Simulated assay, not measured.
Amino acid sequence: GTLVLSDATAPLALAAGPVTTGTDGVVDLLGYGASNTFESTVRTVTGDNSVPNGLVRQGTTDTDVNGADFSVTTTLTPRNAAGETTAP
C-alpha cells in the first residue's frame, strides 16, 4: 500500500519507484508491502491478509527511508486520541 500526505488540491499521479523530497504535492509518503511507490526503500511486510500486521514508527525522526523509519509488528496496540491503549 501507499499512504501520501499531500498539500495539493488535485489528485496526484506518482510514478513507480522512489519518491524524492521536494516532489510537488507530496508532504510525506509511506510505501509498504507490495507498494511500488515509496521513500528511498519500501517497508516490506510479510504474510497474507489473515496476518494482522501493523507498522510502528522507529523514533521521531523522518529520515525519508520507509524501510528504516518503520518496523512491522503482529502485536497490535490500538490507541485512542488521548494516546491511551484501548482493548482490541
Score class of each variant (00 low, 15 high):
E39Q: 15
D64M: 10
L12H: 06
E84A: 15
S71Y: 01
A8I: 01
V72C: 04
T41Y: 10
T75R: 05
V65M: 02
T75S: 14
N80I: 04
V65Q: 08
G31D: 01
V19R: 06
A87W: 07
V19T: 15
T61F: 11
L29W: 04
S40F: 11
G54Q: 09
A87K: 11
N53M: 05
P11K: 03
P52G: 04
T63N: 15
D64I: 02
A16P: 04
A16W: 01
T37V: 15
V65A: 14
N53R: 09
G17S: 06
T37S: 14
T41P: 03
F38R: 01
G31A: 00
F38Q: 00
P18I: 01
P11E: 05
E39D: 13
L12C: 05
D69E: 07
T44L: 14
G31E: 00
V72A: 07
D69W: 08
L29Q: 05
G54N: 05
T41L: 09
T20M: 11
T20F: 04
G1D: 14
L30G: 02
G67P: 11
P78N: 07
D7N: 15
V51S: 13
E39G: 01
T46H: 10
V19C: 12
T73C: 01
F70K: 03
T41E: 13
A15R: 10
L55E: 06
A87R: 11
G54Y: 02
Q58C: 06
L14M: 08
T9D: 14
T21L: 12
P88Y: 10
N66F: 07
A10E: 14
D7P: 10
A81E: 12
D24P: 13
D28A: 14
T73R: 00
T41R: 14
T44C: 04
N53I: 01
V56T: 08
G31R: 00
D28M: 02
A87I: 11
V42P: 03
R57P: 08
S6W: 09
G1V: 08
A16I: 00
A16F: 01
T46N: 15
D64V: 05
T41W: 09
D69T: 06
T2Y: 06
T23Y: 05
T9Q: 10
T2C: 07
L14N: 07
P88I: 13
F38W: 15
T21H: 10
D69Y: 06
G31W: 00
V26C: 08
G1K: 12
N49P: 10
S6K: 08
T75Y: 02
A16Y: 02
F70T: 06
R43I: 02
T73F: 02
L5W: 13
R79M: 10
T73K: 02
V51W: 07
T37E: 12
D64N: 14
S71L: 05
G59V: 05
P78W: 09
T20P: 11
S71F: 01
A87Y: 09
